[in-house]
Design a protein around this nucleic acid. Structure first.
Lengths: 78, 78
DNA sequence: TTTAAATGTAAAGTCTACTTTACGTATAGT
DNA sequence: ACTATACGTAAAGTAGACTTTACATTTAAA
């Protein structure tokens, strides 16, 4: 199981920048090359994105993958 | 596109440990909870594993995800 | 030279990340 | 009140990660 801090990180970015449409779900989706639905699903948190998408997110937010995603191996694996 | 150092890392582990069957493709697959085919596909390199699998690998090898996988965003994205 | 362990390949099947479309709600500006 | 923007939800479809099975090749030890 994987948990993430996507929503928190995005909220910070939105409050920081005045050109805020860059960090909306849609703006983020566009820059990642995915759909808004994918962002929504990720923020809801119960799924396991691809490594490529995780790398792109980390790059956009300027952090490491481990700063966004946390792996909890304990429960029913995946 | 994602490239990885899986094969090199595994080779090192195999030469280091005398109970080497732990680090064979099959041993590794078993401990990861995937099949040997998945390991082979990853070592061939042309695919994009899930974040969960990347985390498990990093844990087993005792390194960070970024030490195994490198993201090359330049080419045809994914 | 035979045997077994480790690796390689190929092809069809399953599951789920991700897409597409469409509609619904909340909020703020005019 | 009306409009536009950002967010939420649901459902069916596509693509690719991962499985399953089966067989072939390499390597080293007995």
């Amino acid at each position: 199981m994987i948990v993430n801090k996507l929503r928190e990180l995005r909220d910070v970015k939105m409050s920081e920048s005045d050109t805020s449409e860059i960090w909306t779900q849609e703006g983020l989706a566009k820059r990642l090359g995915v759909t808004r639905q994918t962002i929504i699903s990720m923020e809801k948190g119960t799924y396991n994105p691809s490594l490529a998408l995780a790398f792109k997110l980390a790059n956009l937010f300027g952090v490491k993958i481990e700063d966004i995603f946390e792996f909890r191996g304990d429960k029913s694996e995946s």
